[in-house]
């Protein structure tokens, strides 16, 4: 579903001073692309709100455990204690403090998601850019490889790979990345194909730059918008993918944990003890929602046209 987001018209903010999007803006001073993108992004209320919420979640998951009295591994409490000052989210069946589980799960979920997003972006961009720029045999080979990975059901493949190695967080992250780079590769390939027809690429080639230099010094920097947006959205996808895999019990295994695993272990109590479910659930949805909003804001900020469509 990753390509889905990228194709959506992002015009929600629509606060550009320059509604028709012709680049000929009379600016009092010269601004770099980076400054312009940053300014636009800072004006995107939903995205900025999301940055704040996400930052709070990340900080809380790092800082709170330092002061929090209970350890995630401590299973010495009584089973199913109701929420109280001592246990804000109650305790689980085996007598673990739920709040500590949620905090620990959040750390791992974020760690896995960011690792997955980083790896998928690197793999996807390198393969996509090479395929799009070189064309010919390289393109066919990489495209067939993409097709191959697209038809193998990732959930089963990931589950088997976790079984081959073990359920520690980095194995899950590596395996998820292995089966998630294809959409980014396709998007990058398309953009690299159109960019490589442009004069500046020709100029670079004419002045003697080799493939590596053209691709990584000229092509990739010009795709920074697409790459940033898709990398951001890949984090959200990875959070959900990891949660799904761990939920059916084929992902992260104890002693590592994740929000999906925490939910999976406790959701059957949702009727009588909703706090055992809603803590992890709320954090998971908030992470995914805020990252999606940030991705949307970034897309608007990077879009030089800022399409304003009349209906």
């Amino acid at each position: 579903m990753a390509d889905l987001n990228s194709i959506e018209a992002g015009s929600e903010s629509g606060r550009d001073k320059n509604p028709d999007g012709s680049g000929a803006e009379a600016l009092p001073e010269a601004r770099s692309q980076g400054t312009m993108v940053l300014r636009k992004f800072l004006r995107h209320k939903l995205a900025m709100g999301s940055v704040v919420v996400l930052a709070l979640i990340i900080l809380a998951s790092i800082i709170v455990p330092l002061f929090y009295p209970h350890s995630f591994a401590d299973a010495s409490f009584s089973s199913y204690v109701d929420p109280s000052g001592e246990h804000p989210l109650g305790t689980t069946q085996v007598g673990k403090d739920m709040m500590a589980q949620v905090l620990r799960g959040t750390q791992f979920s974020l760690l896995i998601a960011i690792t997955v997003a980083f790896l998928t972006t690197v793999i996807g961009v390198v393969l996509g850019a090479l395929a799009g720029y070189l064309g010919g045999f390289t393109d066919s080979a990489i495209s067939r490889l993409t097709d191959l990975f697209l038809i193998v059901p990732s959930i089963a493949a990931a589950a088997i790979m976790v079984r081959v190695f073990d359920g520690s967080w980095y194995v899950v992250a590596l395996v998820l990345a292995m089966f998630a780079w294809m959409p980014i590769a396709r998007i990058t390939r398309a953009e690299a194909m159109s960019l490589s027809q442009r004069e500046f690429i020709e100029a670079a080639r004419a002045s003697g730059a080799g493939t590596g230099r053209v691709v990584f010094k000229h092509l990739v920097p010009n795709m920074v918008g697409t790459i940033t947006v898709n990398a951001t959205l890949a984090v959200a996808q990875a959070v959900l993918a990891e949660a799904a895999l761990s939920f059916i019990g084929l992902g992260v295994q104890i002693p590592d944990t994740s929000l999906g695993l925490v939910i999976s272990e406790n959701y059957e109590q949702m009727q009588g003890r909703p706090w055992l479910f809603f803590g992890a659930f709320t954090v998971l949805v908030l992470i995914s929602l805020t990252i999606n909003f940030i991705g949307d804001g970034l897309r608007d900020a990077f879009d030089p046209r800022q399409r304003k469509v009349k209906a």
């Binding site: 959200a236 959900l240 949660a243 799904a244 939920f247 999906g260 939910i263 999976s264 959701y267 949702m270 479910f277 659930f281 998971l284 949805v285 995914s288 929602l289 990252i291 999606n292």
Partner: peptide, 9 residues
């Protein structure tokens, strides 16, 4: 943004 199992639950 919701994981599907959460919708189901």
């Amino acid at each position: 943004s919701m994981p599907i199992f959460c919708v189901a639950i």
